[in-house]
Design a binder for these strands. Sequence first.
DNA 1: AGCAGAAGCGGACTAGCGGTCCGATTGTCT
DNA 2: AGACAATCGGACCGCTAGTCCGCTTCTGCT
Lengths: 196, 196
Amino acid sequence: MLPVELPLVADRHERADAAANRARILRAARRLLAEQGVSAVSMDAVAAAAGVGKGTIFRRFGSRAGLTHALLDDYMRSFQDAILTGPPPLGPGAPAGDRLEAFCLALVSTQWTHMELALAADPQPGDPQAGAYSFLLTHVRKLVEQLQPGADAGVLALLILGAISPPVLAWLRRDVSSGDQALADSVVRLLRGITG
Amino acid sequence: MLPVELPLVADRHERADAAANRARILRAARRLLAEQGVSAVSMDAVAAAAGVGKGTIFRRFGSRAGLTHALLDDYMRSFQDAILTGPPPLGPGAPAGDRLEAFCLALVSTQWTHMELALAADPQPGDPQAGAYSFLLTHVRKLVEQLQPGADAGVLALLILGAISPPVLAWLRRDVSSGDQALADSVVRLLRGITG
DNA sequence: AGCAGAAGCGGACTAGCGGTCCGATTGTCT
DNA sequence: AGACAATCGGACCGCTAGTCCGCTTCTGCT
C-alpha cells in the first residue's frame, strides 16, 4: 500500500498556463478555507477568488472532492513520509505500542492544526477519493495486528480512527473546554486497551 | 439533563388534519429512508411521497434537521428509557464498567439496525438539534467519571462516542467483511483501556 | 518565424437542494 | 350556520455542484 501515488501530480506535458492556474486555484482555495471557513469554499467562490472560470477548476480537479483531496495532499504527504521513513516512534523502529500512540497523537495534532481542511476532507463511506484515509487505516491496522494478534485488526483500526476523526475533534474544540494536554491524555488512555 | 423534553409531541389542540398529515409525513419519510437510502430523502421527495405540500412539512418540522430529529425520537426514546429505568447492565444497578460496555454495544446495535437514519441524524458540531446526542454524551461522561476519576471524562466520552459513530459503522458495513461478533469484540477490547 | 492543431479557458446553463411565502382551503367552536 | 383562525399547497428564491461548447492561447514542427 505504498504512497498510493497521489494523483494530479503533473501530466507529462502540462501547459504553462494550466500549471499556473492550478497553483492559483489551490492558493485561493487554501486562503478561503483559512479565512472564511469551510462553508465559504464553494466552487464558484474559489473560481472567483482565483480569477479563473469554474470550468477550469472542474477540468483540473474533477469535482469538489477532487479539489479537497488535492488540498489534503500537501500535509498528508509529509505525514506519510514521517510514518514510512521518519524517526521513531512515529517512523519505523519503535515498538508497535509506542508507534500507535505516537501516530494517534500526531494525527490529532495535524488535524487540529488544519481543522477546517480536515473537516472538509473527511471521507464519507463509499467515497472513492479515500486514498489518503486508507493509508492511515492500513497503517493502524498493521500496528494493531502486532499488538492484538487475536483481534480483528481491521475493525479496531476503524474504531480508533473514528475516535479521533475530524468531527470529533471539531466537537471538542467547540464545546469542551479542555487543554491540549487533556486531549492527549485521553487519547493515550483510550489506547491503553490496545497498547496493553 | 433528563429526557430533554423532545419537542413536537402534540400541541394542546392540534387540528385533526394536521395530526394526520404529520403521521403521513413521518411514515413517508421512514419508508423513503428504508427503501432508497438517505440520499433519496429530500424534502420534495418526502412531500410527494406523503401526498402533502412542502410547506406543510416545514410548518410541522421547521427544517430538515427537525424532521430527522423527529424520526430519531422514536427509537431514541426507548433507548433512553432502557438506560434510565431499564434492567442492568444497561440500566442502573450494574458496575459502571459493565454499564459502559453494555451501553456501547447496545448503541452499536441500535445504530446498526437503523443505519440510514443514524447517518442522516448524525449531529454536526454546533448543531443546536443535538439534544438526543447530548443525552448519550452525558451518560457516557458520568460512567467515565466513575471509572477514571483522574481523567477528563468529557473528552473521553466524546472519543468513545466517536469510535462508534454512525459514519464509522457505515464504513464497517461497506468495506470490512467482519461478523457482528468481531465488531462487538473490538468494541469491548477498545473499552478495556477505560473499564480497567 | 510562422502556423496548425491541440489543449485549455470561461461563464452561461442545468438540475436539484433547503427553505419561504401567501392566496386558497378547511376544520372547529360558538 | 357562520365566522375566524389554523392549515395547506406549490410556486418561488437563492444557492449549490457539475456540464457544455464556442473562443482563446499555447506549443511543437517545419
